[in-house]
């Protein structure tokens, strides 16, 4: 019987799930009459989460001039929508600890994801039309389908990676997966986002980052994540040569209005921040 992406994520809930604090914040943010105070209280109910949130709020990632020492200060300075995104970013690396695999180390997986998050956030700031915090989260989540595939279908996943190497790294991973399984990590990630009830913006960024034409409500954000994924690969292998990474869909530049001249600055920026961001989001605590 053929497996489908939705079947693959059906029983993921037992292995990888988001913490209550995320769902509480999410629920409040979606209520129009919630106050900053309501959200701050939801944050404060999880002391470990609060501690991490304050550490991130006071890190150079935000570069705030005043010291953020309470949840309500964090929520009012960072913003309610943005706190929801940040809560998801803070939760997701923990959520996947229960889905180990033998194909990629979690450190390496999250390094690529965090580089993509940093690039996406930086590009969103240049664009001024996408929420940088939401784009950070989208970048962090864009490949989560890989963790599901690597854990649930390790043989097929390995076959795909061997096929990529066999092609001299010319065959894109997502196409190798489609050949081996009939679907790719983007589709699986999209299904997981649906199962987790993530906002439509994130679902589209995850599901369509290799196929930007398929975007429906959020073509601009999807195109941004498509670009960010490739620039994150440049940052990882420390190259500015576009021949060293998969091609960027030319449409993505048009849709975002971003200039290709930004590439070098963006890659350098992500490289300079990655160690700190790894400590904040993947560090043990």
């Amino acid at each position: 019987m053929e497996t489908t992406p939705s079947e693959l994520v059906k029983d993921i809930g037992n292995l990888a799930s988001l913490p209550d604090v995320y769902y509480h914040i999410n629920h409040l943010v979606e209520q129009p009459n919630s106050t900053v105070d309501d959200i701050a209280k939801a944050v404060a109910r999880d002391p470990a989460f609060t501690l991490r949130l304050l550490r991130i709020a006071n890190s150079p990632l935000y570069g705030l001039s005043s010291h953020v020492d309470t949840p309500s200060k964090a929520v009012s300075i960072i913003g309610t929508q943005q706190i929801r995104s940040l809560a998801l970013s803070m939760s997701v690396t923990h959520a996947f600890a229960g889905l180990p695999n033998d194909l990629v180390s979690m450190d390496n997986f999250w390094r690529h994801s965090l580089l993509c998050a940093l690039v996406a956030r930086f590009l969103a700031r240049q664009m001024r039309r996408c929420d940088p915090e939401a784009m950070f989260t989208a970048g962090l989540l864009h490949d989560i389908g890989e963790l599901v595939i690597f854990n649930r279908m390790p043989d097929k996943a390995k076959e795909s990676l061997l096929h990529v190497l066999d092609s001299g790294d010319e065959l894109p991973v997502n196409l190798a997966e489609q050949e081996a399984m009939g679907f790719d990590h983007a589709a699986v990630g999209g299904e997981l986002a649906k199962a987790w009830n993530l906002p439509a913006l994130l679902r589209e960024c995850i599901a369509f980052h290799h196929d930007i034409k398929a975007a429906r409500q959020y073509p601009r954000e999807v195109a941004l994540i498509h670009i960010a994924n490739i620039l994150a690969q440049m940052a990882e292998v420390d190259t500015l040569d576009r021949e060293d990474v998969p091609p960027i869909d030319p449409q993505a530049w048009e849709i975002t209005g971003l200039q290709e001249g930004l590439v070098e600055e963006t890659v350098r920026e992500a490289q300079s921040s990655i160690a700190e961001v790894e400590a904040l989001f993947v560090g043990n605590s």
């Binding site: 194909l103 990629v104 990676l161 990529v164 190497l165 790294d169 690969q233 292998v237 060293d244």
Partner: peptide, 24 residues
């Protein structure tokens, strides 16, 4: 990933993502 052309001596070296590290 290395591709070498002995006839010309040209070589293309491509650094691969850590995604491939375990497989290699």
């Amino acid at each position: 990933m290395v591709i070498y052309f002995p006839s010309t001596g040209k070589v293309r070296v491509k650094r691969l993502r850590s995604l491939h590290s375990n497989t290699i």
